[in-house]
């Protein structure tokens, strides 16, 4: 295997892919949360729809979307490989282990949290991405905002969304700073800053996401 391809397949290489795709997904989250937050303007979805429509048709965004999917898929494929290799690295488990003494539960549960996110993601794509796609290719008018309002009338959907973003929050609580560490960006002065930003990011972004279904369900936005 060439030295360069090992750069992606070795242990650190795989982490590199994880970190990079993770960071990419974080940057996507920033865009996503910003646009979605437009619903809180409470203008009946007008501004939001304009933005959503732009996102659905702009060619640059379309290309980015492909990248995003590739990113998620890479992230997931690598996650599966990493997790299975890591399990194999300790065939016999401890009879008595006390991991809580040295690390946070969510840092040890990235696979589980990721799986929860994935399950949520499937539902989420089915709810929003799929209808948008259909409308784009069938050239129908599609009111994304109306779609949202419709979907978030059901309690269980709201509950799943809230749980989904909580998983995301914990995933990021570890993942945000972890990706910096993976990329080798550890610095006596800057790492504390990254950690603080990471914590706030992992709290604020999921809260904004969570507020959407909640606000709509309770009719705070309409």
């Amino acid at each position: 295997m060439s030295s360069l391809s090992k750069a992606f397949t070795s242990s650190i290489g795989k982490k590199f892919v994880m970190g990079l795709t993770g960071l990419f997904l974080i940057s996507f989250l920033i865009v996503h949360v910003s646009i979605n937050a437009l619903i809180f303007l409470n203008d009946g979805g007008e501004t939001f729809n304009v933005a959503a429509d732009f996102m659905a048709h702009n060619i640059v965004i379309r290309i980015m979307e492909v990248g995003l999917f590739l990113g998620i898929i890479l992230h997931i494929v690598q996650a599966i490989m990493l997790t299975s290799q890591n399990n194999a690295a300790r065939p016999e488990k401890y009879a008595y282990n006390k991991p809580q003494a040295n690390s946070k539960w969510y840092s040890r549960s990235m696979g589980l949290l990721g799986t929860l996110i994935l399950m949520f993601l499937v539902l989420h794509l089915y709810h929003f991405w799929w209808p948008t796609k259909v409308s784009v290719y069938t050239h129908q008018e599609h009111n994304t905002f109306q779609n949202i309002v419709m979907i978030f009338q059901e309690e269980w959907v709201v509950a799943v969304y809230v749980l989904g973003v909580i998983s995301l929050g914990y995933h990021l609580l570890h993942g945000f700073q972890s990706s910096f560490q993976t990329m080798g960006w550890n610095h006596k002065k800057w790492t504390p800053v990254v950690k603080t930003v990471g914590v706030w990011f992992s709290i604020i972004v999921p809260i904004i996401f969570a507020l959407m279904p909640i606000a709509i369900y309770f009719g705070w936005v309409s």
């Binding site: 650190i12 795989k14 290799q85 890591n86 040295n102 040890r108 550890n186």
Partner: peptide, 29 residues
Amino acid sequence: GFGNCTNTGACEAECPKGISLENIARMNR
């Protein structure tokens, strides 16, 4: 056959000599 690092930080917390995670970042870099 060692596993891959997921930056949980358990190693640093348990290391009897206080070896820092910064070393891992430096190695990655």
